[in-house]
Simulated scan of single mutants.
Amino acid sequence: MTVTAIIQARMGSTRLPGKILKEVNGKPLLAYQLERIARAKYVDKVVIATTVNQKDDVIVEFCDNNDVEYYRGSENDVLSRYYEAAELYEGDSIVRLTSDCPIIDPVILDKTIKYYDDNDYDYVSNTIERTYPRGLDTEVFSRAALEKAYKEATLLRDKEHVTAYMYSNPKNFKLGYITNEQDYSEYRWTVDTTEDFELIELILKKLYQENNMFYMNDVIELLKQNPEWVAINAHIEQKKL
Score class of each variant (00 low, 15 high):
R72T: 09
Y150T: 02
F141L: 12
I59F: 07
I20P: 01
L88C: 07
S185T: 01
E75A: 15
S93W: 14
K19V: 11
T51H: 05
Y71I: 07
E129M: 15
E198F: 06
I103N: 02
A9W: 00
S13K: 02
D196G: 09
I200W: 02
Y208Q: 06
T163N: 11
A9P: 01
Q225N: 13
K27D: 03
L202R: 13
S125A: 12
Y187T: 08
L29A: 08
V78S: 08
Y208S: 04
N66E: 03
G73S: 03
Q33M: 13
K171G: 15
T190I: 13
K148F: 12
I103M: 04
F141E: 04
T193L: 03
Y165Q: 09
E237I: 12
L204Q: 05
A9I: 04
Y208F: 13
P17F: 05
D118Q: 13
Q209L: 14
K224M: 13
R72L: 06
D137A: 09
V24R: 00
T194I: 15
V68Y: 00
I103L: 09
D64V: 14
L21V: 09
E90V: 12
Y32E: 03
Q8C: 13
K111P: 05
H235R: 15
I200R: 03
Q238R: 12
Q182K: 14
A153H: 02
A38R: 11
F141W: 08
A85I: 09
L146M: 10
T98S: 10
N226E: 10
I220W: 06
I236V: 15
K19M: 11
Y116D: 11
I94K: 01
L34T: 04
K205F: 08
Y42I: 03
F197K: 05
I94M: 09
N169T: 00
A144L: 11
G26H: 01
V162C: 03
K206L: 12
F62E: 00
S125K: 00
V95E: 03
L156T: 14
V230I: 15
N172F: 10
P227L: 08
